[in-house]
Simulated scan of single mutants.
Amino acid sequence: MKLVIIPTYNERNNIGQLLDLIYHYVPGIHVLVVDDGSPDGTGGFIESLMAGEHQGRLFMIKRTGKLGLGTAYIAGFKWALARQYEFIFEMDADFSHNPKYLPQFLKVITGCDVVLGSRYVAGGGVTNWSLIRRFISLGGSLYSRLILNLPFHDLTGGFKCFRREVLETINLDDVKSNGYSFQIEMTYRAFLLGFAIKEVPIIFEERAEGQSKMSSSIFREAIWMVPKLRAVKQNMKAVSTKPV
């Protein structure tokens, strides 16, 4: 079974069309929306779809406020692991992640454990970004690669697919990041645990509706959180060498 997890906050104008495209490209897939109490009525709209045309394949976790990207995905991962899903996706609600790539992710993950949608490998890219936005994104991935000694080109992207075993093995309660550094931390933990990770090219498309969730606080969190993630490796070594 396959599941796409989509965090939402004020995505009422996007989510209906996005769901239609997801089901078009992967007809048998399930979708879990994690809504952070969207004032625009996203949650109520999802409930209407759950009771109507998407009954049995669309689900929702309703939260009481804007609690952050990382906690939304952790809640979604735990929900998925309590059920029989084998392949679990992360995906944005704003069309920056094109559903047309979903079949390719599913094809690639037959030979690995984690698939990263990458803007910075051959064939990947971004559209409608300013130079400063490109600089911040590229710089963030390069900074993370150097600090954490990782071989991947796009560490801040949020379009991913995990095998169930990866999320079962990572201690989800130990994951501390909540902004874009959450994406770095999940990939880093999977890498340290020895899981096979592959990047596939995607074109990241700037959102057409609403406002970007990028903020200065999210950027600052990534700057100071990445060096702290090196402690994850040390903690894993300590656990592995601990006397039985």
Rank of each mutant, 00 (worst) to 15 (best):
V31D: 06
G157C: 08
R83S: 08
Y73R: 05
P27V: 10
Y101C: 04
A72W: 02
L148P: 02
S48F: 02
E206T: 15
F87W: 14
M236S: 05
N149H: 09
S144P: 02
S215D: 09
V175M: 06
F162R: 07
L148Y: 03
L67R: 07
M91N: 11
I202W: 01
I203W: 04
P243K: 03
H54R: 02
I46R: 00
A231S: 10
I74D: 00
V121P: 04
D174K: 10
E47L: 07
H153F: 00
K213A: 15
D20T: 05
F204E: 09
S130Q: 01
L32K: 05
L19T: 10
P99A: 12
L172H: 11
V232T: 12
F219S: 10
N13I: 07
F59A: 04
H153V: 00
N128R: 11
F219I: 14
G157W: 08
L32F: 06
A51Q: 05
G56P: 06
T71R: 08
N149A: 05
L21G: 06
N13R: 11
V244W: 12
V239E: 12
E11V: 04
V31G: 08
V34T: 03
I74L: 10
G140R: 04
K213F: 11
F195Y: 14
K233R: 15
S141F: 02
W129R: 07
Q84H: 12
F182P: 04
I203R: 04
G194P: 07
S212V: 10
G37V: 05
S177T: 14
N10F: 02
I109S: 08
T187Q: 04
E209F: 12
L18I: 11
G70W: 10
H153S: 05
P103D: 13
L229N: 14
K198F: 03
V126L: 00
Q55V: 02
P7T: 04
N14Q: 00
R83T: 07
R207H: 06
I29L: 09
R63D: 15
L146P: 00
G37T: 06
L106T: 14
G41L: 07
I46Q: 04
V226T: 13
P103A: 12
G124E: 01
D174I: 00
I6H: 03
